[in-house]
Simulated scan of single mutants.
Amino acid sequence: MSKTRVALLVGSLRKDSFNRQLARAVEKLAPEDFGFEHIRIDNLPLYNQDFDGDYPPECRRLKDEIGAADALLFVTAEYNRSIPGVLKNAIDIASRPWGTNSFAGKPAAVLGVSVGAQGTAMAQQHLRNVLAYLDVSTLAQPEVFIQHKEGLFGPDGAIGSEGTRKFLQDFVDRYVAWVRRHG
Rank of each mutant, 00 (worst) to 15 (best):
S17T: 07
G160R: 02
P84N: 15
L152Y: 10
V144L: 15
L8F: 04
S114C: 09
N80Y: 13
L168H: 02
A117E: 15
G99W: 08
D64H: 10
H126K: 13
K3W: 06
H148Y: 14
F145P: 03
P45L: 08
A23I: 00
L29A: 02
K166M: 07
G116V: 03
A123Y: 07
L13F: 05
Y133D: 15
E27N: 03
V26Q: 01
S102N: 07
V179P: 01
R40D: 15
D16S: 09
V113T: 14
S17I: 08
A30I: 02
D42G: 10
A77P: 15
R61T: 14
G151P: 06
P97M: 12
N129Q: 15
Y47N: 05
D135Y: 10
A71D: 10
R174H: 05
R14E: 13
E58K: 08
R180F: 01
F171H: 06
F167D: 07
R81C: 14
G116Q: 11
I91F: 07
D16A: 08
P142C: 11
L152P: 02
G53L: 11
V144E: 13
D33P: 01
F167Q: 09
P155T: 02
I93A: 09
Q21R: 09
V75S: 14
Q118A: 08
V110D: 03
E27G: 02
E150R: 08
M122V: 12
N80T: 14
R5K: 12
G11D: 07
E150C: 04
P142K: 10
R96I: 10
R20H: 06
E78H: 13
Q147T: 11
Q124W: 12
Q118F: 11
K149Q: 14
D135V: 04
L46W: 07
S161T: 05
T4Q: 11
L73D: 10
L134E: 14
V86K: 00
M122W: 13
N48D: 15
I39Y: 02
L44F: 05
R165P: 00
S114G: 09
L8Y: 01
K166A: 13
P107G: 01
Q141N: 15
A30F: 05
S82A: 15
V113I: 11
H182K: 07
R81F: 15
I66N: 01
P84W: 13
F171K: 03
T120N: 13
G157H: 02
D170P: 00
H182L: 10
L9N: 02
Y79V: 15
D54V: 04
Q124V: 08
L152A: 08
A108E: 00
A7R: 00
R20M: 13
D54M: 09
V144H: 13
K88W: 06
F103M: 03
D173C: 00
A123M: 10
